[in-house]
Write a protein that binds this DNA or RNA. Structure first.
Lengths: 145, 145
DNA sequence: TTGACAAACGCAACTAAGTTGCATTAAACT
DNA sequence: AGTTTAATGCAACTTAGTTGCGTTTGTCAA
C-alpha cells in the first residue's frame, strides 16, 4: 500500500501548525511511514525499543492520540482483538482481509467501494454516512491450499 | 429486527445438546431475546440487576463466551468503543449505522450485501471470505435536521 | 544566547474490562 | 437419594490504556 506522504512532509506540516518536533514524535512518525500494516501501541513500542529509541508508555499513548486527532494516523479495531491498531491515514482508502487461520492481515481496495450502498442509506434512512469500516474474515490463499 | 428463534427454542436446543438450564442462563437468554440492540457485558449486568436477578461478574462473562461459542449470540465491536457488544446471532444478517453525534445505533439490511465484492476477492486474492463486519459512521436523520 | 512560555514528558498511581485458579454448589441423569 | 460434572462464586490478577502533577525542553522573541 503506497502512501501519499512521507515522514518529512508530515513533520513539516505539524511544525507549520505550531507543534514541536520532538525526538519521540519524529521516531514514531518514522515508524508509521516505514510500516504498512496496522500496528498496536504495544507493537509500536516494540519497534521503538528495537531501534534503541527511549520512550515512556504514557508519552507514546499521548502521541498516538495526538496523531489521531491531527488526522495523521487512523484507528482500526479488528473484531477478534481487544487492542486498537493504527496506520497512516494518508494510505489509499482500503479494507482488510483477516485470515482466521494464520491471523495475517492483507489490504484490499474495492473498485466502487460502498458508494452505492451509502447513497441508498441516505435515501432510505436519512442517515448521512461520512465513513465506514469494513473487515472481511475468512481463509487466505496460503491457508486453504 | 425480528429474530428466527425465541428464548424457549434456544433453551431446549441447549438442553438437547446436554447443557444445563440454569437460573442465570435462562435470564441472560431472556434478556438477549427481548432486546434488539447490541449489548455490552456491563449493560447486560445492569438489566439483570434491574430485574433483581442475582449474578456474579465472572459467571456472566463465562456465560457470554459460552453463548458465543455455541453460536447463540455474536460479538460486535464498534470502532469508537473499547467494549465488546453482543446480540442474538439468529437476527437477520445486518449492519449498523452509528451516529457520531448522538451515538445511537440503527440496524440496516443491505439488499445484495457484499456478495459481489466477496466473489471478486476470491478471484483476485484467493481469499475465501466466510464473514464480514461492516459499520457505517455518520450523522443520523435526527441529528442533521 | 538567553530567557520565557507552553507544549511535551516522566513517573506513579489508577481505571475499565475482562480472565484465571480453585474450591463449592447444583442440574440432571441413574 | 446418590453421583457426576457442568456451572458457580470469590479473590486475585492481567491487559490496555488513562490521569494528575510536577519537570523538562522545543521554539520564538529580545
Amino acid at each position: 500500500m503506497k502512501t501519499k506522504e512521507n515522514s518529512e512532509e508530515i513533520l513539516s506540516s505539524l511544525a507549520n501548525e505550531g507543534f514541536r518536533i520532538t525526538r519521540l514524535r519524529k521516531a514514531i512518525i518514522g515508524v508509521f511511514t516505514g510500516n504498512g500494516l496496522p500496528m498496536s501501541a504495544d507493537e509500536l513500542m516494540e519497534i521503538l525499543r528495537s531501534g534503541n529509541t527511549a520512550f515512556n508508555k504514557t508519552t507514546v499513548y499521548r502521541e498516538i492520540s495526538f496523531l489521531k486527532e491531527r488526522g495523521v494516523i487512523q484507528e482500526i479495531q479488528f473484531l477478534h482483538e481487544r487492542v486498537k491498531r493504527y496506520e497512516l491515514a494518508s494510505l489509499e482508502h482500503h479494507h482488510h482481509l483477516v485470515c482466521l487461520r494464520c491471523n495475517r492481515v492483507e489490504d484490499i481496495v474495492l473498485e466502487n467501494d460502498l458508494a452505492e450502498q451509502e447513497r441508498s442509506i441516505l435515501n432510505s434512512k436519512g442517515f448521512k454516512v461520512t465513513n465506514h469500516m469494513l473487515e472481511f474474515h475468512g481463509i487466505c490463499r496460503g491457508c486453504h491450499s
